[in-house]
Write a protein that binds this DNA or RNA. Structure first.
Length: 283
DNA sequence: CCGAAAACCTGAACGC
DNA sequence: TGCGTTCAGGTTTTCG
């Protein structure tokens, strides 16, 4: 986005689906009015949120949810089936389109407070942020009374890590996600955060993790990090490190994948998982 | 503070 | 072929 929309003036805004701007409480006409005539000064991100900096401490904030895309398309290119919002620019160059099949994502225009959009003040810095403070994050995780994977997915502790990269980071660090946060050795916590950063860096270099045409860059191209996954989606396959069979377990209404040998479960963690009704590996 | 469940959607894949 | 079920990368809210 930085290379395609920064410096350009927004002239036209079309909202094709109200749900895509549901977080903009003032509605579509207000949304359009706050964009029209304004210049895009920068493209920034934190964790899974991204925003375009506008004049007057305003920003166009977006989250892709599970199926959202921001696409740069020539004017006149056919509308995508799930086109939700279209921005046109004064130079009549390529449009910016928000496309989202499941409409879990969305856009809103909001105030910048200390250079961060006001609605995401609670979102922590992500592992690739230059000001990310691993020691402080490990302390915060250890203060929790929860399981390590839950903490890793909590965007107010560390952002940018979702279900796939959490499982991959846990595998790299040799940790089971059910490990109690207050029993996490500091060094293990540091290794986990370092692993998360490495997974994210490698995934970015590969263009992201794409299982289908929903996960694409602004030109619609898929990444290929899915070929580098060691545990996510690999149930039944041998661990790339020790050869044991990768397990799939239910977790928070979704799935966790891990190697039972490289990522041993903590006995107390297992006990508390059972107590709370979550599934636990008995191997 | 923590966890569970529901809510928000569409489409692909699968079983019968 | 068609119908119903299940599942998917996420966040937020509500409730206990």
């Amino acid at each position: 986005l930085d290379g395609h929309v920064v410096g350009r003036v927004i002239t036209e805004v079309e909202v094709h689906h109200e749900r895509a701007i549901r977080r903009h409480l003032a509605g579509a006409s207000d949304f359009a009015g706050r964009l029209r005539g304004h210049t895009v000064h920068a493209a920034q991100r934190r964790g899974k949120y991204l925003w375009l900096v506008l004049d007057g401490e305003q920003a166009l904030l977006g989250h892709l949810g599970m199926s959202g895309q921001l696409r740069v398309q020539p004017e006149g290119a056919p509308d995508e089936t799930h086109l939700r919002v279209r921005l046109r620019f004064a130079d009549h160059g390529p449009e910016l389109r928000f496309v989202d099949q499941r409409t879990f994502g969305g856009l809103t225009v909001t105030e910048l407070v200390d250079d961060v959009p006001e609605p995401i003040a609670h979102i922590a810095r992500d592992p690739l942020d230059p000001l990310f403070d691993p020691a402080a994050v490990v302390s915060a995780i250890r203060r929790r009374r929860s399981a390590v994977k839950r903490a890793l997915l909590d965007q107010s502790l560390v952002s940018g890590v979702g279900n796939i990269y959490a499982d991959e980071a846990l595998w790299r660090a040799g940790l089971h996600g059910g490990w109690p946060t207050d029993a996490l050795p500091v060094a293990k916590g540091r290794a986990l955060l370092a692993a998360a950063g490495e997974v994210m860096t490698e995934a970015l270099a590969a263009g992201g993790t794409s299982f289908d045409a929903l996960y694409v860059n602004i030109n619609g191209q898929s990444g290929y990090f899915d070929r580098s996954l060691n545990v996510y989606g690999q149930a039944g396959r041998p661990c790339n490190r020790c050869g044991a069979t990768i397990l799939r377990e239910p977790f928070m209404n979704r799935s966790s994948y891990s190697c039972p040998r490289c990522q041993p479960a903590h006995l107390m963690g297992l006990a508390s998982l059972r107590r709370t009704g979550a599934a636990a590996s008995t191997s």
